[in-house]
Design a protein around this nucleic acid. Structure first.
Length: 288
DNA sequence: TTTAATGT
């Protein structure tokens, strides 16, 4: 019976077609994987953030945008990180701010009015101005996707955080040539309490981190953690931390492809020499 | 050249 079935021409034809389909799927996904890896390497120095311990909270997806990547968590209903490279050799004229837009890839209904009358700003992770300046208008539009927004208190978003963004693109990038930046939210260590603190569906962070790295054989790094509750006029260097501290607060492992010895030296200490931070730590904001 | 965002 089986042998007769096996000899049927239509059955063998189906097998052949299946084989061809599997071959195409294999080659196609292989090409997709290579393309994806190439894009990630271009947009994220030494690997996108990963996790040391696997828990439900560590599940996240990488959303690819023009000029930056976002690590999206369907548990937090929030981005966990945004990663981008800023270079001094590209300077595009920056146009008007485009509108905020829903990102359908998040699946969760996070819309431009999700933060309405909540007391929180829609704060950019990958910044509008710097991304637009380096990557142009299409990338600028992508920074206004709701998947790139976090609920931020106005005093932080419009003052302290804005001052940091301005120093990064106007001072550090011209001074150092190129910077790898990763930033994102810090959530309540108590998961239940955090899960209850939401704007719409989006979990409200307790603080935000920003990591800056000058790529190269002897990389230099600077890391900040800024809480929601600030006045806005504090000196930037008051918020310096080590990358190890950011990893402890977020559970993320940054720059996983770094050789262990380099990673230990880069991430274990706070070393601001060479950045000229003191000179810009107290520059006034534009909107206070 | 101009970097944030809300609310009306």
């Amino acid at each position: 019976m089986l042998q007769r079935l096996f000899r049927l021409p239509s059955w063998r034809g189906s097998l052949r077609r299946l084989g061809i389909a599997v071959l195409f799927a294999g080659v196609g996904s292989g090409l997709w994987y290579m393309e994806e890896r190439e894009v990630r390497e271009r947009l994220s120095w030494m690997g996108v953030p990963t996790w040391e311990r696997l828990t439900p909270l560590s599940l996240h997806r990488v959303l690819r945008n023009d000029g930056f990547l976002v690590g999206w968590s369907d548990v937090r209903v929030s981005a966990l990180w945004a990663s981008y490279v800023l270079r001094a050799d590209s300077a595009v004229d920056v146009g008007e701010r485009p509108g905020f837009r829903r990102d359908w890839r998040t699946l969760w209904p996070v819309t431009p009015d999700s933060y309405l009358r909540s007391g929180y700003d829609r704060g950019h992770l990958a910044p509008n101005y710097a991304i637009a300046r380096v990557y142009g208008p299409a990338a600028q539009r992508d920074t206004f996707l709701m998947s790139n927004m976090v609920p931020q208190r106005p005093e932080l978003n419009r003052q302290l955080w804005q001052r940091l963004e301005e120093v990064v693109i106007d001072r550090f990038v011209p001074r150092l040539g190129a910077l790898q930046v990763i930033d994102g939210p810090v959530f309540d260590a108590d998961f239940t309490r955090g899960a209850l603190s939401r704007v719409g569906l989006v979990e409200v962070p307790k603080a935000f981190y920003k990591i800056l790295v000058v790529p190269g054989d002897r990389p230099q790094a600077l890391a900040f953690v800024m809480p929601q509750e600030v006045r806005g006029d504090e000196p930037l260097d008051r918020f310096l931390v080590s990358i190890d501290r950011v990893e402890a607060l977020t559970g993320l492992d940054f720059f996983p492809n770094l050789p262990d010895a380099t990673e230990r030296a880069l991430e274990g200490q706070v070393d601001a020499t060479g950045w000229g931070l003191e000179a810009v730590a107290n520059l006034p904001g534009r909107f206070d």
